[in-house]
């Protein structure tokens, strides 16, 4: 199966109303080539974006948001993108904030066939509003449910043409788990090599999770 394609072709799969998982922690591992293609070549709107931080003032996501195409955000730390902060002020329901580990685990569960999990994080805070609270032993936990996307954008340092991805250093963050939790997963890679040229011991994301592979503009 040929996975190597253009960014424009890959993002053309995104439909109105889709849930889009976007990897990266601030700029580390942020799939800017794919977000730029979403900005410039796709007209998909009413998008829900799942992102740790929704990028910075210099990232492409804020420009997609300025086009009015993002109606809902799930994130954790949004101090680096003032547009997300403004969305939260204008409509509190448009931005849902989670403890960072809870967001990560929701996505991990989404990719791993787990419906939900109990976590002690958020007990006694606004995070517990509307959630089931249950005691295990003498400690209270909140039920958090899995989160999946229609499409995921992730960024690799090196990928082979089967889709096996190596994510170097601190770029693994959310991308490595989001790639397992969406129906259609697009990876951009700084370097793309032939099958067999990426050491199996260095694979962060097995290739079966990747549906489309795009050459990153960041090389």
């Amino acid at each position: 199966m040929e996975k190597l394609t253009s960014a424009a072709e890959a993002v053309s799969k995104i439909k109105d109303g889709d849930v889009l998982l976007v990897g990266g922690f601030v700029m580390a591992g942020s799939p800017e080539t794919l977000i730029k293609a979403l900005l410039e070549t796709s007209t998909a709107k009413d998008l829900t974006v799942v992102s740790n931080d929704t990028g910075t003032v210099d990232s492409n996501m804020i420009k997609v948001m300025q086009q009015g195409r993002v109606v809902k955000i799930h994130g954790s730390y949004i101090g680096s993108n003032p547009m997300t902060g403004q969305m939260l002020i204008d409509d509190a329901d448009s931005v849902t904030l989670y403890p960072q580990g809870t967001l990560a685990e929701k996505i991990r569960c989404g990719g791993a066939g787990i419906a939900g999990f109990y976590t002690p994080v958020g007990v006694g805070t606004v995070i517990e509003n509307g959630k089931e609270k249950r005691k295990f032993g003498d400690r209270e936990y909140l039920l958090e449910t899995a989160l999946r996307g229609n499409v995921a954008f992730v960024k690799a340092t090196v990928a082979d043409k089967f889709g096996n991805c190596f994510m170097r250093g601190s770029t693994k963050n959310f991308g490595a788990i989001m790639a397992r939790a969406a129906d259609y997963v697009i990876a951009e890679a700084k370097k793309i090599v032939e099958v067999g040229e990426l050491d199996p011991e260095l694979v962060t994301i097995p290739g079966i999770f990747i549906d489309a592979l795009v050459q990153s503009e960041d090389i």
């Binding site: 730390y77 949004i78 902060g85 580990g101 002690p120 994080v121």
Partner: peptide, 15 residues
């Protein structure tokens, strides 16, 4: 005031 989000703080202080 503008809300930056909790990031990892809730997880860290609990864990």
């Amino acid at each position: 005031k503008r809300v930056p989000g909790m990031g990892g703080a809730m997880d860290l202080v609990v864990g």
